[in-house]
Design a protein around this nucleic acid. Sequence first.
DNA 1: ATTTATGCAAATCGTTTGCAAACCT
DNA 2: AGGTTTGCAAACGATTTGCATAAAT
Lengths: 153, 153
Amino acid sequence: MSSDLDIKRLHHDVALRLSSVGQRYTDGRQQIVEFLAGSPRPVGVAAIVKELPDIPQSSAYRSLGVLTQLNVTRRIAGTDDNGYYELSEDLVGRHHHHALCESCGRVVDIDSSSKLEKALTEAARIASEQTGFTLDAHRMDLVGLCRDCANKT
Amino acid sequence: MSSDLDIKRLHHDVALRLSSVGQRYTDGRQQIVEFLAGSPRPVGVAAIVKELPDIPQSSAYRSLGVLTQLNVTRRIAGTDDNGYYELSEDLVGRHHHHALCESCGRVVDIDSSSKLEKALTEAARIASEQTGFTLDAHRMDLVGLCRDCANKT
DNA sequence: ATTTATGCAAATCGTTTGCAAACCT
DNA sequence: AGGTTTGCAAACGATTTGCATAAAT
């Protein structure tokens, strides 16, 4: 099946990036990458160490640090000031955005579509002109209330 | 001049919201509100206590907490996991968005314009459908590099 | 007089770091 | 051997909280 191949290819790509700067693709790092690959949304460090109990917090943070530097992973700052991690877009080849719940901190993916991209590209262009910001691949986080939190009100 | 009137009206509105829940509009709280009113962008707590030295950190946090609960202020989570505060849109009557620098954490305002709003409203609609999120007045944070950080590269 | 706000210091929580041991190559 | 990663515990920085005092109504 293709997902099996994908994982192999993913590990291969990650290994390449690590070795290019003299870093090793250790078992713990592989576990983290694979876990992120299997998650439909960015995951917090708490969830990572819970799911991968033989990886202590400090190692998780350190690994995520080097992986993020090498652009293997990306860190999303949630509205709850926790870090959420996902594989970088150029590894998974899927452009997307995020919706952040301002009540519970949940982060979910918004898959890209041509209509959405068109709207956001235009928005990013205007915003960039006005602020002088470089909007790399127009990353955009929408802030609102997730369904659960909206229903609690 | 009109800004003088605006400030008076602002204080009046804030006082109203506070008193409606039995809270007092103390001098420290007035100072904070006035400082936020005078800033062109969301400000961090560090900046607040630096500019208003007779307000200790804990009081600043506590005041901002109640002001935010009453929707007098709003908290923006920066990419650096610090809290940045601004007056809420319904007090200042100016709809806007934010650009977050993913390198230095800086937060700047993006003034709204009809073209931008049109693009973002469309984006919010699509995203909302897909995620089930309620996108309150489509708040949207664009993440990229501010001019300073882009030049450092 | 009763409730609410303040100010200090201590606690908390996510995250980072120092250091010695374990691991690759 | 020589550099890298791990694991623990201690350090950190932003934010929160307990508690006794001060202020407002």
